[in-house]
Amino acid sequence: MNSFFDRLYDALRSIKLAVALLVLLALFAIVGGIIPQEKAIDYYLTKFPGTGAHIILGMGIDHIFSSIEFLIVAAVFAMNLTVCTLHRLANEFTKPFRKRRHGPDLLHLGLIILLFGGIMTARTRTESVINLRKGESADLPDGSKISLVDLAYEQYPDGRPKSFASVVTMSRAPRSGEHADAAATTAADSSLAQRTIKVNAPLRGKGFSIYQQNWHAEQQAELSDAMGLRFRLDPGMKEEFSDGFALFMAKGQTPETANDAIFLLEKGGVRTVVKASIGQPVGPFTFSGLINESISGLAIVTDKGYPYVAAGFILVMLGVFITYIRKLKGMLA
């Protein structure tokens, strides 16, 4: 019995096994690096017509990094790595202090932590996108509220984007027992500190981060009714009246009609397409112009794995540099 475990232990701490597994993992990655991953079934059917798509879908190559085959190899590798690391660490501790080399230990330990972090990320990461216009608010995972105070978009002279930025305020999270609204009323309070979220400069909250993910401009049509009351319609939205509705379809498509709007008008069961310039009627309403609305797309991400990943990165970096600085010193001496 004992000898079985001895043999298993020896097998699991074998560097040859490690090399074989590294090569195997690389082969999986090559397949996953050539065949696009996690696409819709139609994508494979049109891209690799016939047997190609059958093989890809049948063998699960479209999601190779979450396939059971890959995960088993990765799990054996993780065991191999863990046993190796502990064995080497224990071995190193038997040596006199000055002879110890802990570079590879730090490195291998860092990798184990990184692996753990990776699993945590895969299991706990959440992402939700909120689209905010100026003045709008949304809830955050900790119960606080975020409000968009301003948003700025800059272009280079050639039209490529130069920067996207959202200026936001965050209300404090509600205290225990406090109603969320009580804390949230302060969200739009101008006395709150303003923070800026930019691409490459996320805003870190308690247990979540907010990223500037996209930015788009949307055109709304502004209309006024018989009383002179103004309201706005997003594309595709309609406003009803007594015997019908007006639906904002799009803005004018040619340069001359760029300030005009196209509506679908239903009145008494009859539908017509109405093109309106500023000041012209659309059913009982009057079209008073197009309004450019900018919308900031913010991604809210929670990831319990990230602290472990970060710790793993630091250890791997330290470990790999310590290992080779010592080695190279030895080789030059």
């Binding site: 090559i30 696009p36 992402e127 691409v199 981060s209 990223y211 991604a299 990230y306």
Partner: peptide
């Protein structure tokens, strides 16, 4: 930049290989 530190895109995958 994107809020995800690894996403198996082809460039990442090949760097890993």
């Amino acid at each position: 930049a994107w809020g995800v530190w690894w996403s198996w895109d082809p460039k990442e995958t090949w760097a890993l290989i």
